[in-house]
Design a protein around this nucleic acid. Sequence first.
DNA 1: TTGAAAGCGCTAACAG
DNA 2: CTGTTAGCGCTTTCAA
Lengths: 365, 365
Amino acid sequence: MKKKSPVRPRSAVTVSGQSLSPAALRHVTMADVAAKVGVSKMTVSRALNRSEGSGRSATLALHERILQACKEMGYVVDQTARTFSSKRSGFVAALIPALNNSNFSDTVHGLTSAVEASGLQVLLGYTDNDQHTEERLLRAMLTRRPEGVVLTGGSHTPAARNLLKAAGVPVIETWDLVADPIEHTVGFSNAEAVAELVRHLHAKGYRRMAFFGGVPESDARGADRRRGFESAMKGLCLDASRILSVGRAPVSMADGAQGVAQVMLRWPDVQALVCVSDHPAFGALMECQRRGWAVPDRLAIAGFGGSEVAASCHPQISTVAVDCVSIGRAAGQLLLRAIDAARQGQRLPAETVLAPFRVELRGST
Amino acid sequence: MKKKSPVRPRSAVTVSGQSLSPAALRHVTMADVAAKVGVSKMTVSRALNRSEGSGRSATLALHERILQACKEMGYVVDQTARTFSSKRSGFVAALIPALNNSNFSDTVHGLTSAVEASGLQVLLGYTDNDQHTEERLLRAMLTRRPEGVVLTGGSHTPAARNLLKAAGVPVIETWDLVADPIEHTVGFSNAEAVAELVRHLHAKGYRRMAFFGGVPESDARGADRRRGFESAMKGLCLDASRILSVGRAPVSMADGAQGVAQVMLRWPDVQALVCVSDHPAFGALMECQRRGWAVPDRLAIAGFGGSEVAASCHPQISTVAVDCVSIGRAAGQLLLRAIDAARQGQRLPAETVLAPFRVELRGST
DNA sequence: TTGAAAGCGCTAACAG
DNA sequence: CTGTTAGCGCTTTCAA
């Protein structure tokens, strides 16, 4: 039976007094702190993990000394070791289509703010609107054993669904009301939102309307919105066939500029153009200004998302405002409850949280 | 001396055939795979980590069988355990001011694309333009033992600098040419870029120019740009005092709209407005359209960043185009070399990589 | 090329 | 409240 010495041997390669390898240099460990203070590792561990109000003043003083020593020695807990030992990674994995889309990054903000108080870190990935990239990322993230997963939308490869099932952690799909959810959902009906927008436009007198978006195969959410356009138009006994699909998601401002030109060419009498999101709506608006088509008199334009640019441009663009941050926050709160349940060996029944949206009619219509 | 049985006992709590705790359910481990194939854990480990071209066909066949078994059993390596054992987290920490700023998220794209081939994952955090948030995040991220750190800009708390020093991993500051860099730098002189823009405007005949940005204390990068404006104006023997600072970074479109109104009020004869970034420049442009101030005839407007909106609006906004993606890519490549050196116990001498920028004069000037 | 043993830094579980 | 013991799942090291 061998005995470990309380202090690990240090073995940094040293040449003429200079450490060759600061990167490989051992970090200060809990054992070092324990040795210095003259207690066991466990006492240090407890001092670090102790929540606020505690009992005896002698204990408090000791914990104070320990924390002081940690600071002096530059000790930083090794979350890897902690994870390994406790089976809690402290990670929440989140996947969004793109970083530079403020809708989704706002959702990440909401998610982060909701979970950080519980000491959870968000491990973020972006899929570039591609299911296979999503699957690849998911595979990579799951090796980090996240305690929960937040996805955007409901379109995933079968393999991705299997991975999630096998991971056995709570899963939340956001932004869409998924038909066949993996587990929990926080979102709204994109179809219904566009339908409501169309009905508002109808009430304002618009009749000949067109829809512009990306090709449906590349963008499930955009396809939902398009369906909403179609069903609302049909419901109003209007021509629902004026639909132009160009390019892959995310549909850009430049796409919108091109799109409006094509729409006007194909359907010269169109009165209103509903765009799949604010970016192409803005591009369309600018193209109209370039060509001297008065907005909204010659053509009305509407977008989706409630982005900054839609509110800042002139005229302001009518849109469907979505509270992106609250989607993330709601997902975070739901996830916290699910993780809490999981830690106690329970499983939270699947929930669906409805996120609000609001049609905002502005100068462009 | 005790012997471990090769197969761990499973201990999921089970009630009437239903696992109560799928989240707590043990994952398939390497030992399980090894037992199934009838080899040792090490052989499985080697099969998983083996790079392409290998020797004997018998070995290759065995490795094939092992990989097959992994797939069948749904085995996923536990990166936590791997990190713990190998001292390589496979993480690169990256901190940017905000997610929803396409400049910085593009840089993250570049960084990710550069490092992912080496199996490194980017652990991303956003600081909300706040040094203390940065320090807090850094502290949290360092518990994950990243193999390298990429920061935005050169303004950090002293404590943050100490943390980085103590971490002993390569550090890269991006976007700015930092005066006193922590280690490596990938960026450009924001001051020089704005100065060049000003000189271009001067060549076009503009003389009475103003600068609009956030308050300098909240935004080191903006302050650099402002300095560039001042020095260029002085160099051209022009009045460099027309500077309006409003609000904290990030300066918004709405700030720009307000700003241009104030500028026109204070200096009614101003000919050109240089904005700290494209967002306020766009807001200013729209405000001018709202008020009927012709751009560029009554007032010319320029931005900074080369964003999509500056190129899509009408008139297009003159700007300083920055190749944000290549900043990230260059940082990633540099980091790979530094990490490689660190793994071999070496330390890469501090490097500075200059990122290119280009003044783009467009319709707004 | 393969296997056996040891241990990374921490926390769970139990004993004092 | 504190300490001791025993791993977590993998890779490193060394021996076969």
